[in-house]
Amino acid sequence: MSDTPKERLPGDSAPYEDDDIHIVHSQLLREKDEPSEGFSPVPMLLLFLFGGLVFWGGVYIANYSGDFRWDIYNPEWKPGMTEKVAEKPPLMVTGERLFKNNCQACHQANGAGVPGAFPPLAGSAWVVGDEARIVKILLRGLTGPIEVEGNSYNGNMPSYGENGAGWNDYQIASVSTFVRASWDNGAPEITEEAVAAIRGETADKSGAWSGEEILGAHPL
């Protein structure tokens, strides 16, 4: 330190005296002692206040903890309360959404398909009538040459079942119902139960269907 009047050499082991400080650090002389602690007791009133707070905390957790379940998001939930099962929207509503997001790109919004590439859904004998055809195709996909309404197609319809997009019965039923009811197709809805039954029957099937397989089992 440049302000030190008496230079101390490195390694000088002579201890500092308080007198040295007077010169070196006038600041330290006016410095108060290092902080210490008093031992006043905690005020009684505070303990009552904290007791009250802890009690409130316990009551709050008891009332709004949703039984500590991971799947309860409503703080007002009580163990006896009948759980409101999430209502599924009508098949047509979900079906329209699924169709727009998944099918429309190929089969087009008007269901007419693209001639020579993607077969039509509107007015197609494949989708109306026997409900097993559309459900089977959705569950496993369809590949190879087929003929729809007088035109030939040779493409790949992807699977939306276990080995594809993994849709559940409700989703398959929704989109099938939507396709069968739109564009003046006028076919009745397909229920979830019907899809479940067909899914059970075709559980052993591996790979996509061919056109002959489908038509052999369910002629137009």
Binding site: L49, L53, W56, G57, G66, D67, I72, Y73
Partner: peptide
């Protein structure tokens, strides 16, 4: 977020009154 986690967070936030008052 599961309700109990949020409720615990709320209770702990209110309990912060203790260290603050002290």
């Amino acid at each position: 977020i599961p309700a109990w986690l949020i409720s615990c967070g709320i209770v702990a936030s209110v309990m912060m009154v203790i260290p603050v008052v002290v």
